[in-house]
């Protein structure tokens, strides 16, 4: 029964949603939207599970002095600070248990939660995102080493696209006559991005789309059950 009930639910909901795609009449037309709302409600409750997991794993690390347990103190402290400030004085326009915390807000300018959000969280997030620039440089260096025909082609295409997107690229070929305008670097760059790149991406997307249909059918028909933890 532990397996059969989820399989029956999956089959029924899956078939209903496929049918609903073609029927605008109620209740089919609104079925997809309704189920999405259900999903949001369930995922809202599921956040508690995530938080419990976070607390459990980090508390155990501290309790049993596991490797790198000191980091867990920072995690838990950050968690409790943010939750605590949000609960006590609220966030944005919503009030907390002690109202809007006017006294604290008068000192730091805004609510404590918003202060930490804007001055700590957002900067940490931006730091992580900015790492991407360095990683792109290191990855590009490895990718653009000419070893064989394919990597050489990649290198040439990459140089053309990069140059075409810079002012220098435009200047380098600005002397070309009107009849050879198609060789102007920004035009070449645009051509590479619009045609070969888009074609390649669409091929991947069509393949992925078919893969999604195939996987969905396997799940709906109950052939693929590993997501339930079984064969």
């Amino acid at each position: 029964m532990k397996r059969k009930i989820p399989l029956i639910i999956t089959f029924t909901v899956g078939v209903l949603l496929i049918i609903a795609e073609f029927i605008p009449h109620k209740p089919f037309g609104t079925l997809s939207g309704e189920l999405e709302e259900w999903f949001l409600v369930i995922s809202g409750f599921a956040i508690i599970l995530g938080q419990l997991s976070l607390l459990k794993v980090n508390t155990f690390k501290i309790k049993y002095k596991q490797k790198d347990w000191q980091y867990s103190i920072i995690t838990l402290a950050s968690f409790f600070f943010m939750v605590g400030f949000g609960l006590l004085w609220g966030t944005g326009k919503s009030s907390g248990i002690f109202g809007h915390g006017e006294v604290i807000s008068a000192v730091i300018g805004i609510k404590p939660f918003d202060y930490l959000f804007q001055n700590v969280y957002q900067h940490l997030q931006a730091t992580m995102f900015s790492l991407l620039a360095f990683f792109i440089a290191s990855a590009a260096y490895r990718a653009f080493i000419g070893r064989n025909l394919e990597s050489n082609l990649l290198l040439i295409a990459a140089v053309l696209v990069m140059l075409g997107n810079t002012t220098v690229g435009g200047l380098l070929t600005s002397w070309l006559p009107e009849s050879l305008n198609f060789l102007h670097l920004p035009k070449v760059s645009e051509f590479i991005m619009t045609y070969p790149t888009t074609a390649g991406q669409r091929a991947i997307m069509i393949g992925a789309g078919l893969g999604i249909i195939g996987s969905s059918l396997r799940i709906i028909l109950g052939i693929e059950r590993s997501y339930l933890g079984g064969e």
Binding site: A208, G211, I212, G214
Partner: peptide, 24 residues
């Protein structure tokens, strides 16, 4: 892309699942 979705069928070696890849 599609290889990600085919992975489960590929690893299971189950003929039913492999059949779906042929359909794709």
């Amino acid at each position: 892309g599609e290889e990600l979705f085919a992975a489960s069928a590929y690893l299971s070696k189950d003929p039913h699942q492999l059949g779906s890849l042929k359909g794709q």
